[in-house]
């Protein structure tokens, strides 16, 4: 039995259930009763549930992950995930440049680089160029944060 496959299959069934429950709670005006906004979601929900059941069945019969990669570096995955979570929380308070640097450094670290000086320098230049390019040339709004008034 493949545990990962079982979890993925159950996850799909759970999403299917969430869609079905949410849509069942909708109040549909009688004009739209026949082909209203519920029909399609229920179709997708059934499809997801079926797909989930098929994955569970395959996981049970050990035909799910026949060629899974040899080893998974979960630590690296966790580092990038942490970098993304930090980035979305830091973006508004400290601004684009420091937040992007944190994200960049987390990725380089996860990919096994230990040249912190080089990575930090590249991160700084990249973040500054992106910030100035996007705000000055393309007119997008990015949070300045700590660098407010400096750049």
């Amino acid at each position: 039995m493949s545990v990962a496959g079982l979890l993925i299959g159950l996850g799909l069934i759970a999403i299917a259930a969430i869609i079905a429950i949410d849509v069942s709670g909708m109040r549909v005006p009688p004009v739209h009763a026949k082909v209203g906004p519920r029909f399609f979601p229920l179709l997708v929900s059934s499809g997801l549930a079926l797909a989930g059941a098929a994955v569970v069945w395959q996981a049970w019969r050990r035909t799910f992950d026949e060629d899974l990669p040899p080893a998974t570096d979960w630590f690296a995955v966790a580092v990038i995930a942490a970098g993304l979570i930090l980035h979305m929380n830091l973006l508004r308070p400290v601004g684009f440049v420091p937040a992007a640097m944190v994200l960049f450094m987390s990725v380089t670290f996860a990919f096994g680089s230990r040249s912190f000086l080089r990575d930090g320098a590249v991160a700084l230049v990249l973040a500054l160029v992106a910030y100035l390019g996007f705000t000055r040339l393309l007119g997008l709004q990015l949070p300045a944060g700590l660098l407010q008034g400096i750049i």
């Binding site: 990038i80 970098g83 993304l84 980035h87 979305m88 973006l91 508004r92 684009f96 992007a100 994200l103 960049f104 450094m105 990725v107 380089t108 670290f109 996860a110 990919f111 096994g112 680089s113 990575d119 590249v122 991160a123 990249l126 973040a127 992106a130 996007f134 997008l140 709004q141 990015l142």
Partner: peptide, 23 residues
Amino acid sequence: QPLLYGGILVFSTLGVYSLSNST
């Protein structure tokens, strides 16, 4: 490779944020 993927994620988050300035 580390710098390549670092750059890809910085531009990805930048592009997604600038859609509607929403975290």
